[in-house]
């Protein structure tokens, strides 16, 4: 049995053996927003913020998250309304199939909390672990540089 704080709420779960935090979130805690697309840390769809660090929840052993604090896509918005990143991405056409979207929102939110005005290069490098197969990234970059106030002229 593990005790974790998920999006500010104390939860307990009983992960099976070495199962990943992603599996625990999705299948045991009713939080399917984090997506499973590769399970080897190569796509970022399962990104969560664990004790302040951006990680792939598929590579976190749930049993090792005992006592930790986790923020997922379900807890990333701004008290029920879209945060600035979410707002900008939807408006710029940065969402197509949407499977990568939760991971990108979490990763971008983590970036902007540390650095509110990243350059385009910083945004691209910080999100290089998040694969999107639909958009070609252009609309997402336009959205995020707009939020950062660092749009290329």
């Amino acid at each position: 049995m593990i005790r974790i704080t998920v999006n500010g709420v104390a939860r307990t779960a009983d992960p099976a053996g070495p199962e990943s935090l992603l599996t625990t979130l999705r299948d045991r805690l009713g939080l399917p927003g984090s997506k499973n697309a590769c399970e080897q840390g190569e796509c970022g769809s399962c990104s969560v913020i664990l004790d302040g660090e951006l990680v792939c929840s598929c590579l976190v052993m749930a049993a090792d998250a005992d006592g930790s604090e986790v923020r997922t896509i379900e807890g990333i918005d701004d008290h029920g309304t879209l945060n600035a990143i979410q707002e900008a991405m939807v408006g710029a056409g940065g969402v197509q199939c949407g499977f990568c979207t939760p991971g990108i929102v979490v990763a971008a939110t983590h970036l902007f909390e540390a650095n509110p005005h990243p350059t385009e290069g910083e945004i691209r490098e910080a999100l290089a672990g998040n694969i999107c197969r639909c958009t070609g990234y252009g609309a997402i970059v336009r959205a995020l540089t707009a939020v950062a106030g660092t749009e290329a002229s």
């Binding site: 190569e42 660090e53 951006l54 990680v55 792939c56 590579l59 999100l127 290089a128 672990g129």
Partner: peptide
């Protein structure tokens, strides 16, 4: 190394 997520862990 890998992605920012990998480098955090």
């Amino acid at each position: 190394v890998g992605s920012p997520q990998i480098r955090s862990a």
